[in-house]
Design a protein around this nucleic acid. Structure first.
Lengths: 111, 111
DNA sequence: CGTTTGTATGAAGAATTTATCATATGAAAA
DNA sequence: TTTTCATATGATAAATTCTTCATACAAACG
Protein backbone atom coordinates (compact mmCIF):
# COMPACT_ATOMS: atom_id res chain seq x y z
CA UNK A 1 0.00 0.00 0.00
CA UNK A 2 1.26 3.41 -0.92
CA UNK A 3 -0.03 4.64 2.43
CA UNK A 4 3.00 3.23 4.19
CA UNK A 5 5.28 5.68 2.37
CA UNK A 6 3.07 8.52 3.44
CA UNK A 7 3.05 7.22 6.94
CA UNK A 8 6.85 7.28 7.00
CA UNK A 9 6.93 10.81 5.62
CA UNK A 10 4.42 12.23 8.03
CA UNK A 11 5.72 10.52 11.14
CA UNK A 12 9.17 11.75 10.25
CA UNK A 13 7.82 15.28 10.26
CA UNK A 14 5.72 14.63 13.35
CA UNK A 15 8.48 15.01 15.89
CA UNK A 16 9.45 18.20 17.65
CA UNK A 17 13.17 17.59 17.53
CA UNK A 18 13.15 16.97 13.84
CA UNK A 19 10.95 20.00 13.29
CA UNK A 20 13.42 22.00 15.31
CA UNK A 21 16.24 20.80 13.06
CA UNK A 22 14.24 21.66 9.97
CA UNK A 23 13.46 25.04 11.44
CA UNK A 24 17.13 25.72 12.12
CA UNK A 25 18.21 24.66 8.64
CA UNK A 26 15.45 26.76 7.11
CA UNK A 27 16.56 29.79 9.06
CA UNK A 28 20.33 29.48 9.00
CA UNK A 29 20.97 27.55 5.82
CA UNK A 30 23.28 24.52 5.57
CA UNK A 31 24.73 23.40 8.90
CA UNK A 32 27.13 20.72 10.05
CA UNK A 33 26.04 18.24 12.70
CA UNK A 34 27.86 20.07 15.49
CA UNK A 35 26.34 23.36 14.42
CA UNK A 36 22.93 21.70 14.65
CA UNK A 37 23.81 20.33 18.08
CA UNK A 38 24.67 23.86 19.21
CA UNK A 39 21.65 25.39 17.56
CA UNK A 40 19.15 22.95 19.00
CA UNK A 41 20.65 21.90 22.34
CA UNK A 42 19.97 18.30 21.43
CA UNK A 43 22.44 15.48 22.05
CA UNK A 44 24.80 14.69 19.24
CA UNK A 45 23.54 11.15 18.83
CA UNK A 46 19.93 12.31 18.88
CA UNK A 47 20.77 14.80 16.14
CA UNK A 48 22.44 12.12 14.05
CA UNK A 49 19.57 9.70 14.49
CA UNK A 50 17.03 12.33 13.54
CA UNK A 51 19.04 13.55 10.57
CA UNK A 52 19.20 10.02 9.34
CA UNK A 53 15.41 9.79 9.29
CA UNK A 54 15.09 13.15 7.57
CA UNK A 55 17.64 12.05 5.00
CA UNK A 56 15.86 8.75 4.36
CA UNK A 57 12.76 10.73 3.46
CA UNK A 58 14.91 13.14 1.48
CA UNK A 59 13.63 16.09 3.47
CA UNK A 60 17.27 17.12 3.86
CA UNK A 61 20.31 16.89 1.62
CA UNK A 62 23.79 15.89 2.72
CA UNK A 63 27.14 17.15 1.51
CA UNK A 64 30.25 15.85 3.28
CA UNK A 65 33.00 18.39 3.75
CA UNK A 66 36.17 16.90 5.16
CA UNK A 67 35.19 15.25 8.38
CA UNK A 68 32.14 17.41 8.72
CA UNK A 69 28.80 16.48 7.27
CA UNK A 70 26.77 19.44 6.14
CA UNK A 71 23.00 19.13 5.97
CA UNK A 72 20.53 21.43 4.26
CA UNK A 73 16.77 21.29 3.84
CA UNK A 74 15.14 20.17 0.67
CA UNK A 75 13.54 23.53 -0.02
CA UNK A 76 11.47 22.27 -2.91
CA UNK A 77 9.41 20.08 -0.63
CA UNK A 78 9.76 21.51 2.83
CA UNK A 79 9.03 25.13 2.09
CA UNK A 80 5.68 24.64 0.35
CA UNK A 81 4.77 22.00 2.90
CA UNK A 82 5.19 24.34 5.82
CA UNK A 83 3.60 27.21 3.98
CA UNK A 84 0.60 24.98 3.46
CA UNK A 85 0.51 24.10 7.15
CA UNK A 86 0.73 27.76 8.13
CA UNK A 87 -2.18 28.46 5.82
CA UNK A 88 -4.14 25.60 7.35
CA UNK A 89 -3.55 26.89 10.87
CA UNK A 90 -4.57 30.38 9.87
CA UNK A 91 -7.75 29.31 8.13
CA UNK A 92 -8.99 26.48 10.27
CA UNK A 93 -7.38 26.41 13.64
CA UNK A 94 -7.77 29.92 14.95
CA UNK A 95 -9.98 28.95 17.84
CA UNK A 96 -7.74 26.27 19.22
CA UNK A 97 -4.33 27.70 18.46
CA UNK A 98 -3.49 30.90 20.32
CA UNK A 99 -0.12 31.24 18.69
CA UNK A 100 -1.54 31.85 15.26
CA UNK A 101 -3.60 34.77 16.47
CA UNK A 102 -0.36 36.48 17.43
CA UNK A 103 0.80 35.83 13.89
CA UNK A 104 3.98 34.06 14.80
CA UNK A 105 3.63 31.25 12.41
CA UNK A 106 6.35 28.99 11.48
CA UNK A 107 8.06 29.48 8.21
CA UNK A 108 5.94 31.77 6.11
CA UNK A 109 7.63 34.86 7.43
CA UNK A 110 11.15 33.78 6.79
CA UNK A 111 13.34 34.70 3.83
CA UNK B 1 6.60 26.57 20.63
CA UNK B 2 4.65 26.56 17.44
CA UNK B 3 6.39 23.28 16.62
CA UNK B 4 4.01 21.40 18.85
CA UNK B 5 1.07 22.26 16.60
CA UNK B 6 2.98 21.01 13.63
CA UNK B 7 3.87 17.90 15.54
CA UNK B 8 0.19 17.24 16.18
CA UNK B 9 -0.71 17.81 12.55
CA UNK B 10 1.96 15.58 11.14
CA UNK B 11 1.57 12.74 13.63
CA UNK B 12 -2.14 12.79 12.93
CA UNK B 13 -1.38 12.25 9.27
CA UNK B 14 1.34 9.72 10.06
CA UNK B 15 -0.92 6.78 10.67
CA UNK B 16 -2.03 4.25 8.09
CA UNK B 17 -5.57 3.94 9.37
CA UNK B 18 -6.15 7.66 9.31
CA UNK B 19 -4.58 7.86 5.85
CA UNK B 20 -6.92 5.11 4.75
CA UNK B 21 -9.89 7.09 6.05
CA UNK B 22 -8.67 10.21 4.27
CA UNK B 23 -8.17 8.17 1.12
CA UNK B 24 -11.70 6.82 1.31
CA UNK B 25 -13.23 10.24 1.91
CA UNK B 26 -11.18 11.69 -0.92
CA UNK B 27 -12.36 8.98 -3.28
CA UNK B 28 -15.97 8.53 -2.28
CA UNK B 29 -16.90 11.92 -0.85
CA UNK B 30 -18.71 12.43 2.46
CA UNK B 31 -19.31 9.24 4.42
CA UNK B 32 -20.99 8.32 7.68
CA UNK B 33 -19.06 6.45 10.34
CA UNK B 34 -20.57 3.10 9.43
CA UNK B 35 -19.81 3.68 5.77
CA UNK B 36 -16.21 4.33 6.76
CA UNK B 37 -16.21 1.18 8.85
CA UNK B 38 -17.38 -0.79 5.82
CA UNK B 39 -15.00 0.96 3.47
CA UNK B 40 -11.91 0.46 5.59
CA UNK B 41 -12.58 -2.76 7.51
CA UNK B 42 -11.52 -1.02 10.70
CA UNK B 43 -13.35 -1.40 14.00
CA UNK B 44 -16.08 1.10 14.73
CA UNK B 45 -14.38 2.44 17.82
CA UNK B 46 -11.06 2.72 16.03
CA UNK B 47 -12.76 4.69 13.28
CA UNK B 48 -14.38 7.02 15.81
CA UNK B 49 -11.13 7.57 17.68
CA UNK B 50 -9.25 8.31 14.48
CA UNK B 51 -11.96 10.60 13.14
CA UNK B 52 -11.79 12.54 16.36
CA UNK B 53 -8.10 13.20 15.85
CA UNK B 54 -8.63 14.18 12.24
CA UNK B 55 -11.41 16.51 13.31
CA UNK B 56 -9.30 18.10 16.03
CA UNK B 57 -6.76 19.02 13.38
CA UNK B 58 -9.59 20.09 11.08
CA UNK B 59 -8.45 17.73 8.38
CA UNK B 60 -12.06 16.58 8.13
CA UNK B 61 -15.38 18.32 8.51
CA UNK B 62 -18.40 16.95 10.36
CA UNK B 63 -22.07 17.31 9.56
CA UNK B 64 -24.56 15.43 11.74
CA UNK B 65 -27.51 14.00 9.90
CA UNK B 66 -30.11 12.47 12.20
CA UNK B 67 -28.30 9.89 14.23
CA UNK B 68 -25.61 9.57 11.61
CA UNK B 69 -22.50 11.70 11.58
CA UNK B 70 -21.19 12.43 8.14
CA UNK B 71 -17.53 13.24 7.67
CA UNK B 72 -15.82 14.77 4.67
CA UNK B 73 -12.23 15.79 4.00
CA UNK B 74 -11.07 19.35 4.20
CA UNK B 75 -10.18 19.53 0.54
CA UNK B 76 -8.51 22.91 0.82
CA UNK B 77 -5.74 21.48 2.96
CA UNK B 78 -5.67 17.78 2.28
CA UNK B 79 -5.66 17.84 -1.49
CA UNK B 80 -2.67 20.16 -1.96
CA UNK B 81 -0.89 18.39 0.87
CA UNK B 82 -1.12 15.01 -0.76
CA UNK B 83 -0.37 16.43 -4.18
CA UNK B 84 2.80 17.87 -2.68
CA UNK B 85 3.71 14.51 -1.19
CA UNK B 86 3.12 12.77 -4.50
CA UNK B 87 5.41 15.28 -6.15
CA UNK B 88 8.03 14.71 -3.48
CA UNK B 89 7.93 10.96 -3.97
CA UNK B 90 8.17 11.35 -7.71
CA UNK B 91 11.10 13.74 -7.60
CA UNK B 92 13.15 12.46 -4.72
CA UNK B 93 12.23 8.95 -3.75
CA UNK B 94 12.30 7.02 -6.99
CA UNK B 95 15.11 4.73 -5.98
CA UNK B 96 13.61 3.61 -2.70
CA UNK B 97 9.92 3.54 -3.55
CA UNK B 98 8.97 0.93 -6.12
CA UNK B 99 5.32 1.94 -6.13
CA UNK B 100 5.96 5.34 -7.60
CA UNK B 101 7.74 3.88 -10.61
CA UNK B 102 4.51 2.16 -11.48
CA UNK B 103 2.83 5.53 -11.28
CA UNK B 104 0.19 4.51 -8.80
CA UNK B 105 0.52 7.46 -6.55
CA UNK B 106 -1.95 8.38 -3.99
CA UNK B 107 -4.25 11.18 -4.75
CA UNK B 108 -2.90 12.97 -7.78
CA UNK B 109 -4.83 10.77 -10.19
CA UNK B 110 -8.17 11.14 -8.56
CA UNK B 111 -10.93 13.46 -9.58
C1' DC C 1 51.65 5.38 13.26
C1' DG C 2 48.64 7.32 17.51
C1' DT C 3 45.57 11.00 18.72
C1' DT C 4 41.94 14.17 18.24
C1' DT C 5 37.72 15.78 16.24
C1' DG C 6 33.31 15.05 14.02
C1' DT C 7 29.76 11.96 13.18
C1' DA C 8 27.19 7.47 13.00
C1' DT C 9 25.31 3.27 14.95
C1' DG C 10 23.32 -0.55 17.93
C1' DA C 11 21.02 -1.77 21.93
C1' DA C 12 17.92 -1.23 25.64
C1' DG C 13 15.06 1.11 28.75
C1' DA C 14 11.67 4.99 28.81
C1' DA C 15 8.01 7.30 26.80
C1' DT C 16 4.41 7.78 23.61
C1' DT C 17 0.88 6.00 20.56
C1' DT C 18 -2.42 2.65 19.03
C1' DA C 19 -5.95 -0.97 19.29
C1' DT C 20 -9.42 -3.05 21.68
C1' DC C 21 -12.98 -3.88 24.91
C1' DA C 22 -16.66 -2.47 27.52
C1' DT C 23 -19.70 0.87 28.15
C1' DA C 24 -22.00 5.42 27.49
C1' DT C 25 -24.70 8.73 24.88
C1' DG C 26 -28.07 10.37 21.82
C1' DA C 27 -31.45 10.24 18.22
C1' DA C 28 -35.21 7.96 16.18
C1' DA C 29 -38.50 4.03 16.08
C1' DA C 30 -41.65 0.91 18.08
C1' DT D 1 -40.58 5.19 27.48
C1' DT D 2 -38.39 1.10 26.18
C1' DT D 3 -35.69 -0.50 22.41
C1' DT D 4 -32.71 -0.09 18.70
C1' DC D 5 -29.36 1.86 15.79
C1' DA D 6 -25.32 4.96 15.12
C1' DT D 7 -21.54 6.78 17.20
C1' DA D 8 -18.41 8.31 21.04
C1' DT D 9 -15.56 7.63 25.02
C1' DG D 10 -12.48 5.84 28.82
C1' DA D 11 -9.33 2.53 30.34
C1' DT D 12 -5.78 -0.47 29.58
C1' DA D 13 -2.83 -3.74 27.19
C1' DA D 14 0.04 -4.01 23.12
C1' DA D 15 2.92 -1.99 19.80
C1' DT D 16 5.79 1.57 18.26
C1' DT D 17 8.98 5.31 18.71
C1' DC D 18 12.46 8.02 21.26
C1' DT D 19 16.32 8.94 24.10
C1' DT D 20 20.49 7.80 25.80
C1' DC D 21 24.69 5.41 26.46
C1' DA D 22 28.50 3.19 24.85
C1' DT D 23 31.10 2.47 21.20
C1' DA D 24 32.59 2.51 16.32
C1' DC D 25 34.19 4.69 12.25
C1' DA D 26 36.48 8.05 9.36
C1' DA D 27 39.10 12.07 8.32
C1' DA D 28 42.70 15.16 9.53
C1' DC D 29 46.60 16.29 12.35
C1' DG D 30 50.69 15.65 15.22
Amino acid sequence: MINSSYKRFFTTLGNENRLQIIHLLAKKGPQSVSQIVNGTKLEQSAVSHNLKRLLLCQFVHLKPNGKERVYSINKETIKPLLTLMDKHVREFCQKTCKKCERGDLWITQQQ
